[in-house]
Amino acid sequence: MALGKVEAIAQRLLVRLWDDIKAVLSDLNVPTPRPTDDGYRLFEVRPVQAADGPVEVDIARIVFQLPERFSAPTGRTNLYVHVRGRLGLDANALQEGRLRTTSFNTEVAYFRHGRAGLKHVFGAHYDSDAKSLAHPVFHAQMKCYNERGSDVSDSFSLDCASESVITGVFGTARIPTAQLDFFSVVMQLCADHLIDENADDTRRLAFNRMRELRHRFQGAGYAWPFGQAAECMRSAHWYDDAPPIALV
């Protein structure tokens, strides 16, 4: 991989952020994600195509092993979340040593492992689109990713094939969301599965550190043409105005 200046900065900042996130995951007792948690493997920075154009980063597949709920019986980590995606990073911000999103795409696939084997129980992709008519800028669409069960089985030696319980799920509904880029999804996984009101101080502090780390990664809302979205993602701001046909 050839690294120009902005690509090198992007790789360096992403690896540093990820290393700090790994420290938090360790404090939250998350088993090492597989097949690798090596930041240099996880973030593949593509060569920049145009001067001042965004830096595109592919995020390789990574599988987290988690309890289904924080209150799950000790040691019962039977949920596997497969994540992969892409980030677009603003080149000017990188030159200033900051990570700022221009676009993203995140695909998540949840698998539950139990006596009945490995079940694909939820799948969705999250991305953004400010240009298309009547698209919420940040949204989720459900999707079946059952084929990714083999990554889970191989990574964690589960010795069973995945069976989907969401085959044929309706995928056209664009559900407005917040910005669920890769780092947001990791944060969400922590919130959903690794902490609740019964958590001890170690976990609470780790979770707070994770929230602080998120400030090192700016969202894409600043770029949207309808200004409120930059600061507020209430439903009033999920959709741009639909301009009259005559103006299209």
Binding site: M1, A2, L3, G4, K5, A8, Q11, R12
Partner: peptide
């Protein structure tokens, strides 16, 4: 130089 590319962070 902005035009130089490198194989690794160490090289940079």
């Amino acid at each position: 130089s902005e035009n130089e590319v490198f194989q690794s962070q160490g090289t940079r």
